[in-house]
Design a protein around this nucleic acid. Structure first.
Lengths: 240, 240
DNA sequence: ATCAGCTAATGGTTTAACCATTAGGAAGCT
DNA sequence: AGCTTCCTAATGGTTAAACCATTAGCTGAT
């Protein structure tokens, strides 16, 4: 019947007001909030309380705070940052294991690739091929670090191709975390890396042929092999 | 080559120390941090700065703060709360539309139900049937509010049945948001609600038969119809 | 035994001052 | 003129001490 009356904390009220202004579009990304000493007067509060509100907004990913003169709170465009951090916490706390994540990836990336194939434009294919050639070049130069970055970009770009921000966020969240927590455990491995490249070559070809089923199968198998490789390294148990 | 040297902010250092203690399990869920006036001495900082750190930890969903004597910062078990809020921001800011979410649901819930069928125990089926009967009772009493709550519980429980926390978090995040932002636009509709119940009946039967393909088809169709209904209401454009 | 009210611990807020960082301008050098 | 160096002021970061608001548990009167 009734819901708990929220206990009033001044800083929460400030957070809500600013958040609503951002969400409703009254404050646009890139614009700047007034200085703390002005805001505190506008909200009729103390600077400490106002700063607690800014901390919350910053943690929510709604603003970014810069130092020095002409610094201040700048409204950010919403991105996957908080979700990435949140998933990171779950992984690091052991709540989510590598296998859990792999199972999710197999299902999700299969769907993502299907959509990507359905919606691929010629420009998309070109962009993917460009990334593929970059990755290949790094592979030939044995530049492991850049190879991984480019590999991640390819996955993320396939997410972009779905034209659906939900899939984009999910894809970015997962791959940012893979890069952060797992890639250090996969030292340069010529054989596996070549497999990886071959998979992408096949996916691009399936895209050109408009064969979403094939593309989906390839990526699902790709993820399965990646997971097996990680399990081999005995990585399923806790790490830093 | 180099990464930007992080500018040191005292409260961030405090956040990291406490967060690491929580993640590593040194601080268990339910236990309580010392009082602010003690913590400030332990970290050798001021109370204002310490409170900024607590605000961040609170926003991350790692602690919960209670008032009064024997109040204080209590370590929380990590849950989907932050992700739910984060997705809520995306929806409310118009970054994610109802159709985007529906497309994601169709793919994801299909996978979730498949896994749920594969892993269903007799106890699971019993629990689902219990929820189903509750929902049916609310339907017959025309208790719209409780029907919706029970409907949400069924979806969430199917997520639980995957035994994979990633799917569980995703399922909870999506349905919490559906409940928050969309259910108000679906006034009691006897016809649609009966459809809804029939779908669940069929899913439970498919589970008993171990027919994951059928269950998956039903839920995907279920989501499609839900989305069509919402589009009919002309809901695709901005709301509060 | 019950209930009202007191007590003290704890989070919430305010104020005022000082420190650290930084963009931009002023001064001085070549 | 063009460059470098330094100063200045605006802005976020931090500190300190005091007071307010809430609440669990005790104390005592009924």
């Amino acid at each position: 019947m009734f819901i708990k009356a929220k206990q009033s904390r001044v800083f929460q009220d400030v957070v809500e007001q600013i958040q609503n202004a951002i969400i409703s579009g009254k404050l646009e990304p890139g614009s700047k909030l007034p200085a703390e000493r002005e805001l505190k007067d506008m909200f009729n509060t103390s600077r400490g309380t106002l700063r607690e509100a800014l901390r919350v907004l910053e943690q929510k990913g709604l603003i970014e705070i810069k130092l020095g003169v002409s610094g201040g709170a700048i409204i950010k465009r919403i991105d996957a940052g908080i979700m990435t951090e949140s998933l990171g916490l779950l992984i690091r706390s052991g709540e989510v294991s590598l296998e859990h994540l792999a199972e999710f990836r197999i299902k999700t990336e299969g769907s993502i690739v299907e959509l990507a194939v359905q919606r691929a434009t010629k420009k998309d294919i070109k962009e993917l091929e460009k990334l593929f050639n970059q990755a290949k070049a790094y592979y030939e130069q044995s530049d492991w670090e850049n190879f991984l970055l480019t590999d991640e970009k390819m996955h993320t770009y396939i997410g972009t191709m779905t034209r659906n921000p939900v899939f984009q966020f999910v894809q970015k969240t997962i791959h940012d975390n893979i890069h952060l927590y797992y890639s250090e455990f996969l030292p340069m491995d010529k054989e596996r890396t070549l497999e990886n490249l071959t998979d992408f070559k096949k996916i691009i070809e399936a895209m050109k042929a408009g064969d979403e089923r094939a593309a989906s199968e390839i990526i699902m198998d790709h993820v399965k092999r990646f997971n097996d490789k990680m399990l081999e390294k005995g990585l399923q148990k806790g790490k830093a």
